[in-house]
């Protein structure tokens, strides 16, 4: 690249094309983004099934019927996880519209909005059990512990594709895996949402998104 005399010669393109031609081997085409998303969600579903077997669905359903906004928040987290992962897989294919990046927005709004309502619970219904500092730390550990393997898998899958915008891809990966682990947390959450709880979620999401974005430059960069 340093020598303009070589690269501006059209014959050097021929030489490169010839070299690439000799290196050509048949490749297996990538599956469509929705199928690859489904593959990743399968792992999340397996984890959810494991947690449900251990904890049972009963405490979760009881908590949800007592505080419907928590159910909405959980639903929002699930939608965010699915849509963010789908958007990441779609955007990893060159030529797809960047508008895909907006796909997780409605889910994220529902998730954050409904959890935000939970914050007000302390004032609306002071009787409910509020997360202590110890439980909050557990929450954070849980989300991050689940996010790391989920992110790692997404990164491996996306590296097979071609994320032309690595930072955007990393943000979507972070959002998808944080939302997925927050959804999983719903199953074994022992207490109702409170401001400390929401703050923990926000912090965990921020940590995962930031780490992913910071590493994205190198992890997904030269695609």
């Amino acid at each position: 690249m340093e020598n303009p005399d070589v690269t501006s010669d059209p014959r050097s393109h021929e030489a490169l094309i010839d070299r690439l031609g000799t290196e050509l081997v048949p490749v297996r085409r990538l599956l469509p983004p929705w199928l690859r998303t489904a593959g990743w969600l399968l792992l999340v579903a397996a984890l959810a099934a494991g947690l449900l077997m251990h904890y049972g669905a009963e405490p979760m359903l009881r908590r949800w019927s007592a505080t419907p906004d928590l159910a909405w928040a959980g639903m929002g987290a699930v939608i965010t996880a699915i849509s963010a992962a789908w958007a990441a897989f779609a955007l990893a294919v060159p030529g797809r519209r960047v508008a895909w990046a907006w796909l997780p927005l409605p889910g994220a709004l529902l998730w954050i909005g409904a959890s935000g309502l939970g914050c007000l619970r302390t004032w609306i219904a002071p009787g409910t059990e509020v997360a202590g500092l110890h439980q909050t730390a557990d929450c954070l550990t849980f989300i991050i512990a689940f996010s790391i393997p989920l992110s790692a898998l997404l990164i491996v899958l996306l590296r097979r594709a071609c994320p032309l915008r690595p930072v955007l891809a990393a943000v979507l990966i972070g959002l998808a895996s944080a939302a997925a682990s927050a959804s999983l947390l719903e199953i074994c959450h022992a207490f109702d949402s409170a401001s400390t709880d929401l703050l923990t979620h926000a912090l965990a999401v921020a940590v995962v998104v930031a780490v992913n974005a910071a590493m994205g430059g190198r992890l997904l960069g030269k695609a």
Partner: peptide, 9 residues
């Protein structure tokens, strides 16, 4: 060349 598997015909 490197990402030709991502092309969907």
């Amino acid at each position: 060349h490197r990402v030709r598997q991502t092309y969907d015909p």
